[in-house]
Lab assay of single mutants.
Amino acid sequence: FSITQFVRNLGLEHLMDIFEREQITLRVLVEMGHKELKEIGINAYGHREKLIKGVERLI
């Protein structure tokens, strides 16, 4: 299971460039909250919320 699959499953594949540029893996994403996601350029609250909720389902 990769970050690419995870992001695609959430319908947020347009954010993949950010994850690749910042070298974010699923392991790193698990540790990130709204503040960190915003810092790397994910400005939409809804997108950040989707990512965080998606990660919570993985754990």
Rank of each mutant, 00 (worst) to 15 (best):
F1W: 12
F1Q: 11
F1P: 11
F1D: 11
S2F: 07
S2L: 08
S2Q: 10
S2V: 08
I3D: 01
I3G: 02
I3H: 01
I3T: 05
T4H: 14
T4W: 12
T4I: 12
Q5K: 10
Q5S: 12
Q5M: 11
F6H: 01
V7K: 01
R8V: 11
R8W: 08
R8L: 10
N9P: 04
N9I: 11
N9S: 15
N9L: 13
N9D: 15
N9M: 14
N9W: 12
L10P: 00
L10F: 02
L10A: 04
L10G: 02
L10H: 03
L10Y: 04
G11L: 03
G11Y: 04
G11N: 08
G11T: 03
G11P: 00
L12T: 00
L12E: 01
E13C: 12
E13D: 13
H14I: 14
H14A: 09
H14N: 09
H14W: 07
L15N: 00
L15V: 06
L15R: 02
L15S: 00
L15I: 09
L15P: 00
L15K: 00
M16A: 11
M16F: 05
M16E: 08
M16C: 09
M16P: 00
D17Y: 15
D17Q: 11
D17N: 11
D17P: 15
D17R: 10
D17S: 12
I18M: 06
I18T: 06
I18A: 04
I18D: 02
I18P: 00
I18C: 03
I18L: 09
F19L: 07
F19V: 04
F19W: 01
F19H: 00
F19Q: 00
E20C: 09
E20P: 02
E20S: 10
R21G: 05
R21Q: 09
R21T: 07
E22C: 08
E22K: 12
E22Q: 13
E22H: 15
Q23I: 05
Q23Y: 07
Q23H: 12
Q23P: 05
I24S: 01
I24E: 00
I24C: 03
T25L: 03
T25F: 03
T25W: 04
T25M: 03
T25D: 09
L26G: 01
R27Y: 08
R27H: 12
R27M: 10
V28W: 06
L29S: 02
L29A: 02
L29R: 02
L29F: 04
L29P: 00
L29H: 01
V30P: 06
V30R: 12
V30I: 14
V30T: 13
E31H: 15
E31L: 13
E31Y: 14
E31S: 15
E31W: 10
M32G: 01
M32N: 02
M32Y: 08
M32R: 01
M32S: 04
G33V: 03
G33M: 02
H34D: 05
H34E: 05
H34N: 03
K35P: 09
E36I: 03
E36V: 03
L37Y: 05
L37K: 01
L37P: 00
L37V: 03
L37A: 02
L37T: 01
L37E: 01
K38L: 13
K38S: 10
K38H: 08
K38M: 12
E39T: 09
E39H: 09
E39G: 11
E39W: 06
E39D: 12
E39Q: 13
E39P: 00
E39Y: 07
I40Y: 04
I40K: 06
G41K: 05
G41I: 04
G41Q: 04
G41V: 03
I42S: 02
I42M: 05
I42A: 00
I42V: 12
I42W: 01
N43Y: 12
N43P: 07
A44N: 15
A44E: 15
A44M: 11
Y45M: 08
Y45I: 10
Y45W: 13
Y45S: 06
G46F: 10
G46T: 14
G46C: 15
H47T: 15
H47P: 08
H47L: 11
H47D: 15
R48M: 06
R48Q: 04
R48T: 03
R48P: 02
E49Y: 10
E49W: 07
E49A: 11
K50V: 10
K50N: 06
K50M: 14
K50H: 07
L51G: 01
L51D: 01
L51K: 00
I52Y: 03
I52N: 00
I52K: 04
I52A: 02
K53S: 09
K53Q: 11
K53C: 09
K53H: 08
K53T: 09
K53V: 09
G54M: 06
V55W: 06
V55C: 12
V55I: 15
E56D: 07
E56A: 13
E56R: 14
E56T: 10
E56G: 08
R57L: 12
R57Y: 10
R57W: 12
L58V: 07
L58N: 03
I59K: 11
I59E: 07
I59Y: 12
I59A: 09
I59M: 14
I59C: 14
